[in-house]
Design a protein around this nucleic acid. Structure first.
Lengths: 190, 190
DNA sequence: TCCAGTTGCTAGCGCCGCTAGATGTAGGAG
DNA sequence: CTCCTACATCTAGCGGCGCTAGCAACTGGA
């Protein structure tokens, strides 16, 4: 029994090592640099070992994305918790969201741009995604009026996501960023 | 002289054929299906011919994106021209933008998600992109108040882009789409 | 002590973007 | 009309990709 549990533990550790290596490599050099060969070398095992843990490269990226959703949720919770004024809360949460995306671009890509449909059908993404979404919802609730809170939240979220992605792809210049964010916050907190 | 002009004409036609083949294939089967081998087969030339027209696959995608920017601009111009009421104009232009992205997902990807920095440094993208941007600006101008019109336009654009991309990647369910769009329009036309 | 089952490896398949070097062709000079 | 040069195009191949079949080695139980 004990050797078996040790094996299971070691196996779980190796799985975590794979995810960590993928994440680190993606953050350092972008997802193009994350190949199954490099990952295998990083964890000091051969390539096929990866496939005993994950169905394929997409599944590895999805696992990284899952971590990202948990972190994003925590980030938003923290940002909102430290403010009392509702308008300021919207501004702070929005800023925290954008900062999260800017500081971990590869992570944000895995969550929202790549790995299109993998994590949403199953596992614990819905939980962490819902945590983040709920936090956004609570932030804009004071300004929902008699409209649908969920719809408002989704639209606000889209605005943040659009700002992040358009700037990151160079379609928006970085300079006006703060002013754009201020406009978005203003339009969603009145 | 005349044979030379004929050659130049034929060469230009072949270049157009490459772009058209890439676009058609991407729209039909997605950009993953667009490989240099398939493109070469499509235009009935060998692979290296592609590289006498374009620096690489990215440049071909960029050329497709350039076409897309021109079409998007035309779409927006048409949408705004047919409405008198300013509020309704915002709604119609927004709807036209989203419809454009939904009906040509692969084209929209080439313009905004893939080929990250290629077309923006040169060529005629700025022109067509500016045409589209100007149209958005004129649409929201009545609601700019004494704020910066450019910043407002960029933020509105980000909202549209966010709605499009989050829905296309499955992060937003399709059902609430119309209501989200209505919220965005409402928040930017008051 | 031997056997069975698991674990990880080597090797390789079919694809990718891209390029070097060979080959054929067409236009101008003698 | 012939030859020669220059250009257009092709064949073949490089290194790398995601992924997998099939073999070797180790481990735990009979």
């Amino acid at each position: 029994m004990s050797t078996q549990t040790r094996r299971e533990r070691e196996r779980a550790e190796r799985e975590r090592a794979i995810i960590a290596a993928a994440r680190d490599l993606a953050l350092a050099e972008g997802w193009d640099a994350v190949t199954t060969r490099r990952l295998a070398a990083e964890i000091e095992y051969s390539q096929p070992v990866l496939y005993s843990h994950f169905k394929g490269k997409d599944a590895i990226m999805a696992a990284v994305a899952v971590e990202g959703f948990a972190e994003l949720a925590t980030t938003l919770v923290t940002a909102r918790a430290s403010v009392a004024d509702p308008r300021q809360a919207v501004a702070d949460v929005a800023a925290a969201y954008v900062r999260f995306a800017e500081q971990r671009p590869a992570l944000y890509d895995a969550m929202f741009t790549l790995a299109v449909d993998l994590p949403f059908a199953s596992s614990d993404v819905p939980t962490d995604l819902a945590r983040g979404f709920a936090e956004l919802a609570e932030t804009v609730r004071p300004f929902a009026g008699d409209g649908d809170l969920e719809v408002l939240t989704e639209t606000f979220w889209s605005g943040l996501h659009g700002l992040v992605t358009l700037m990151r792809s160079g379609r928006l210049r970085r300079e006006g960023h703060d002013r754009r964010l201020a406009v978005l916050v203003d339009r969603f907190s009145r």
